[in-house]
Design a protein around this nucleic acid. Structure first.
Lengths: 120, 120
DNA sequence: ATGACCCTACCATGCTCGTGTCAAGGTTTG
DNA sequence: CAAACCTTGACACGAGCATGGTAGGGTCAT
């Protein structure tokens, strides 16, 4: 195949700071999936490169794991899971000790506002 | 200490289906932290028991890891992290195929130059 | 006061994550 | 064509998660 407007995996590795191995791994997590040429070569376009760089910053800057970001993505694309997690987390006012149990229950039932990762 | 209105760890274990060992572990993740008596005994109240049960359902029902839920909690309590992850995820037009190819290209090309300059 | 319970602190195991490397084989290109 | 690159698949390995177990030592109820 002739000149595609993108970088091949090792070139992308060099410009993004990831290793080629990790680029394949990241693709496997579903976070950054480059196009393929007819013969199967990965082609990283500007968008993917940018995404890889920011992903790297995100992970380093907040000390989160790749799998954490992958999980966030899963939440985002699975409204049921999102809802379930949100509900579980919202039902935790860490100190329910000086609250009347009955009030507590009614209060919890009305909690439905703040979204976790909803806005798209 | 005299009769507290809650269950001790092994009782809670029996009632929730977790092992006592896991109850301590779950506490360590920060997801469910029972009160303590003056002498340090964990006391699980109705709220904690309910939380443990629903947590179990959540984990089993969606095949999610405890650490995933812990991470979601971290996101929820750290607005900066939440914002960063949200932004990164939202910047994913996973298939830029329904975008006009010409616009897409010109846009990407300009970005490309900038990006290559910034790369080390 | 004694048996049943709790606590913390380890050690051990099996599994997953993140990462490198190497092998066998297709593709691109000078 | 041959060198340089790509692909998938595998083995390897340290670090961390999820669990169980045990040991030494307090606490509670009878």
């Amino acid at each position: 195949m002739y000149a595609m407007d993108g970088l091949t995996i090792n070139e992308a590795a060099r410009v993004t700071g990831w290793s080629a191995r990790m680029l394949r791994y990241v693709e496997q997590t579903g976070l950054v999936s480059p196009e393929r040429t007819g013969s199967g070569y990965r082609i990283y376009g500007a968008a993917e490169l940018q995404r890889l760089r920011t992903l790297k910053e995100l992970i380093a800057g907040f000390d989160v794991a790749l799998s954490d970001v992958a999980f966030a993505a899963r939440i985002k694309h699975d409204p049921q899971l999102q809802r379930a997690i949100e509900d579980w987390l919202n039902a935790t006012p860490q100190r329910p000790q000086d609250v009347d149990p009955d009030d507590w229950l009614r209060f919890e039932q009305r909690k439905h506002e703040r979204l976790l990762l909803g806005a798209a």
